[in-house]
């Protein structure tokens, strides 16, 4: 299943890539690929912006504005004037 098109904030910087493949290992939707030992985006519309690739890249070769794709989190964030937060551990009883 694919979500909205042309929306992801995912960016790659192949010139910084060392070809270790860590980002490809952690991606749950096979969004990234290596070509000539450099990272490239293979299927950007599958990106859910979980941020695993960026977090696990030691070389700054991948960047993404990571967050949860959860309506309740976004709406709660707007109401409270904070960043999107599903606040699973809170008393609301609703969870991602």
């Amino acid at each position: 299943m694919i979500y909205l098109k042309d929306i992801t904030t995912l960016q790659v910087f192949p010139e910084k890539c060392t070809g270790c493949g860590r980002c490809i290992e952690v991606c749950p939707h096979a969004v990234l690929k290596l070509e000539d030992r450099k990272v490239l985006i293979a299927d950007k519309d599958r990106c859910m912006e979980c941020g695993a690739c960026e977090k696990n890249c030691d070389f700054g070769a991948v960047s993404v504005n990571a967050g949860v794709g959860c309506a309740a989190a976004v709406i709660n964030g707007i109401i409270r004037g904070t960043e999107p937060n599903c606040d699973c551990s809170g008393s609301s009883g609703s969870c991602c």
Binding site: Y3, L4, I7, C70, A71, P84, C86
Partner: peptide, 14 residues
């Protein structure tokens, strides 16, 4: 609301 339970929706999309 089910975007929160789904496994493929992104923050930008929501």
């Amino acid at each position: 609301q089910f975007t929160g339970a789904s496994t493929y929706t992104s923050l930008s999309g929501v």
